[in-house]
């Protein structure tokens, strides 16, 4: 939103609310430029996709954390390109890169360097990745309800309708699913520590 309707907050809010139209248009608009840069600099499409997606997540997290309030679409585009570019240069410089054929597992960690977010976060990247894994292993309806509520920002009423249950039952189910996710995460971390 521009002019009278406070542009800065509008863009940030839309990103924070995971508005699909905006996220998708940012993705579609910016990927070709990053792809072109990486392909021209000893990369390929596979690297470009991974680097770009990590940069995208980084942008999204930075806005969510209130550390970057974009004033316009072009500010978003410039920021995203800069992160992706730096991540790729960092990648090229890395010693490991010289000996690998595919995208290294630690690529994700590099993305946080640019976002300046790691310092004040209490969970590390291994824990975050473990949590995402756990979500995928939850039963389908739990994953669906948690994503609908927390990512798509659907109301409990809408969720209840799609599951054909009462709103109160939907709320209970969501609560139980959060508990399950937390328990699965604790279990997963026990295994990680053993390894």
């Amino acid at each position: 939103m521009r002019k009278n309707l406070n542009p800065d907050l509008f863009l940030a809010r839309s990103l924070i609310n995971n508005e699909e139209g905006l996220l998708k248009s940012i993705y579609v608009e910016n990927y070709p430029k990053v792809l072109s840069f990486i392909v021209k600099n000893n990369g390929n499409e596979e690297f470009a996709k991974d680097i770009f997606q990590e940069a995208f997540i980084c942008l999204w997290k930075t806005v969510k954390a209130g550390k970057f309030i974009p004033s316009s679409r072009s500010a978003i585009n410039a920021y995203l390109y800069r992160i992706a570019r730096n991540m790729w240069i960092d990648q090229l410089k890395s010693h490991a890169f010289k000996n690998i054929k595919s995208v290294p597992d630690d690529l994700e960690m590099r993305s946080n360097v640019d976002s300046d977010m790691s310092a004040d976060e209490r969970y590390n990247d291994t824990e975050k990745a473990a949590l995402r894994n756990c979500l995928n292993y939850l039963d389908g309806s739990c994953k669906k309800i948690l994503i609908a509520f927390y990512y798509n920002r659907a109301s409990m009423k809408e969720i209840a309708e799609s599951f054909e249950i009462e709103t109160a039952s939907a709320r209970n189910k969501k609560y139980r699913c959060m508990e399950k996710l937390r328990a699965a995460f604790l279990e997963e971390m026990k295994n990680v520590k053993k390894v």
């Binding site: 995971n18 699909e20 996220l23 998708k24 993705y27 579609v28 990927y31 070709p32 996709k49 997606q53 995208f56 997540i57 999204w60 997290k61 969510k64 209490r122 969970y123 824990e127 975050k128 949590l131 995402r132 979500l135 995928n136 948690l146 994503i147 927390y150 990512y151 798509n152 959060m178 996710l181 937390r182 995460f185």
Partner: peptide
């Protein structure tokens, strides 16, 4: 931590969907 993990996980899936549309 849990909420952000859920959101990030969903976004990662979305990014792959967006990618297919390019």
């Amino acid at each position: 931590f849990l909420m952000e993990g859920i959101e990030e996980s969903a976004l990662r899936e979305k990014l792959n969907e967006f990618h297919e549309d390019i």
